[in-house]
Amino acid sequence: MSTDELPDDVRHAYEVYRWAGREIEGLEEQRKAARSVIEEFLGESEELMVDGRKALTWYRSESRVFDQALAIQIYPDLDDKARKTKRTRSFRVVSDE
């Protein structure tokens, strides 16, 4: 189906989706740069105070994860026995022109 055949509301939704994606990308770049400045300022500190109030925290954490590569080394047939197929649909803009 071409975009010439689309109802006006769907065409509008497509244009908004494309525009919002570009805006979000730009904002994410700005956010990443701002975070970098804040992290450099904090150093080893865990809290950022703004106007006398706690505004941001940056705590270290630890978690346990499963080392899949090691498990397969130890139990080579585990990969085939434990693997399952997952089906998804990908929603993405093919061309942003």
Rank of each mutant, 00 (worst) to 15 (best):
S2H: 10
T3Q: 07
T3S: 11
D4H: 04
D4N: 15
E5L: 11
E5S: 12
L6P: 00
D8R: 07
V10M: 08
V10R: 05
V10T: 06
R11D: 07
R11P: 00
A13K: 06
E15C: 00
V16Q: 09
Y17Q: 09
R18Y: 02
R18Q: 12
G21F: 04
E23K: 05
E23H: 06
E25F: 00
G26E: 09
L27V: 05
L27I: 09
E28I: 01
E28Y: 01
E28P: 06
E28K: 03
Q30W: 01
R31T: 03
R31P: 01
K32I: 03
A33Q: 01
A34H: 02
A34C: 02
A34M: 05
R35A: 04
S36L: 08
V37G: 02
V37Q: 10
I38D: 03
E39W: 06
E40Y: 04
L42Q: 00
G43I: 01
E44K: 11
E44S: 15
S45W: 05
S45F: 03
E46T: 14
M49D: 10
D51N: 12
D51I: 02
D51G: 09
R53I: 04
R53P: 02
K54R: 15
A55I: 03
L56Y: 15
L56T: 03
T57K: 05
W58V: 08
R60D: 14
R60W: 04
S61Q: 09
S61I: 05
E62M: 07
S63M: 06
S63H: 13
R64N: 11
D67L: 02
Q68R: 08
Q68E: 13
L70M: 10
L70A: 10
I72T: 07
I72L: 07
Q73R: 12
I74R: 08
D77C: 08
L78P: 03
L78M: 06
D79L: 12
D80N: 08
D80A: 12
K81N: 09
T85Q: 13
T85I: 14
K86W: 11
K86D: 15
R87E: 15
R87D: 14
R87K: 13
R92K: 15
R92Y: 12
R92T: 12
V94A: 13
V94S: 09
V94H: 09
